[in-house]
Amino acid sequence: MAEKQYDWAAIAKNPKFIELHHKKTVFLFGWWIFSSIYYFLLPIGAAYTPGLFKIKIISNINFGYIFALSQFFVSWWLAMYYAKVANRDFDRLTRELVDELK
């Protein structure tokens, strides 16, 4: 393995890396928690607030159906949003860090 030897502990203390991993942690876990809560509202709501899920919104299409459908769109939106932030911020910071180590 003709791989370059890195001082991993030193990189871990590099301010660029600290900024990167801090930003990433906040974003990733924050939005993961958001998406999990939003998702679990579906089974929890279906089980404990059946009255809400039965409410007819458009003709006989009820709130439960629209809420379940919204899960798809929220997931897609979050995926696109993450791609945007990652391409703009995380990848840039990573590139800067890698350049600095060269």
Binding site: S35, S36, A68
Partner: peptide, 20 residues
């Protein structure tokens, strides 16, 4: 409806894959 609700988790699961 329960079948549809069952299917939702299969997509939302990918948020975990993507982010984590």
């Amino acid at each position: 409806y329960d079948g549809f609700m069952y299917s939702v988790g299969w997509l939302v699961a990918y948020i975990t894959v993507l982010l984590i």
